[in-house]
Nucleic acid binder design. Structure first.
Lengths: 139, 139
DNA sequence: CACGTTGTGTCGACCGTTTGACACAAGGGT
DNA sequence: ACCCTTGTGTCAAACGGTCGACACAACGTG
């Protein structure tokens, strides 16, 4: 099931791409399973065909699907991350208990990510803001 | 630590808002702690002040922070979801083991979310695409 | 081979966001 | 009371994404 939320900060193309990726990684879309055609999905979601085409293109560049001219777009094997799906379900349950929204739960993931990442991977040389060390003497 | 990724599908304001939310929910920014000035953060991240102001405004409307004219913007108490942060860390570890990116891990959360949600909450009447039931005979 | 299907690319137009600069409002420090 | 700090709001202009329609390319079917 795919839908486009007009209130999302993400554009239609990115929403479609992300939802398809989620379906593939969760195993809801099995390997070799066929995705709807660009035009069909565009009609269903009330978006332009080019928008769906962009989503498909990015999925193909990511290696998640393969696209052939008249054969349609199909899921590539090796992307069913069912193992990592279990921890994701745990997080969803915990988030639901606290009344968090999906976006808030994803924000938690982002927080845990940088907390585990900033020390290992040196961030690209992008403009950053660093907080003054709160220190143990804070307060 | 906050940074803005030009390659992200999210706009600068949304990125800043999301990262601040993550810092607050993870407890990296404690209650009553002061956020950087709108202008200061704008300079650090090389974005317009109005962009940071928009992020702060949305954070305040969400109740995560309080803004006073000359006292700056401070974190509101009661948003340190440290409990739910542990499952998020588990997910991050699992995702890292599989070589997933942050966006991919978040896609897994989205997949788990709808999987647990679609059956309980009737989605708003938005245009949707439904996949033909794969059935047990699929393959 | 002929035809329909499907993915891909292009084009001008529209709309939301960001930008950069500025003025204003309101609290803090002295 | 004065002035600096800080958040808020406005404005025109530039930018990017989407739209909607169309033409094209390649594959499958017959």
């Amino acid at each position: 099931m795919i839908s486009v939320d007009p209130a999302s900060p993400l554009g239609p193309a990115e929403q479609i791409r992300g939802q398809l990726e989620a379906l593939i990684r969760s195993g809801a879309l099995a390997a070799d399973e066929r995705l709807p055609t660009v035009r069909q999905l565009a009609v269903d979601l009330r978006v332009a065909a080019g928008t769906v085409a962009r989503a498909y293109k990015e999925l193909e560049e990511a290696g998640l699907v393969r696209a052939a001219r008249a054969a349609g777009t199909r899921v590539n094997p090796g992307h069913d991350d069912g193992a990592a799906f279990a921890p994701a379900s745990d997080l969803v349950r915990a988030a639901r208990r606290r009344g968090l929204t999906l976006a808030e739960a994803q924000a938690l993931v982002a927080a845990a990510w940088v907390g585990d990442d900033a020390e290992t991977r040196p961030r690209a040389e992008r403009p950053v803001h660093r907080f003054p060390a709160p220190g143990p003497d804070a307060g």
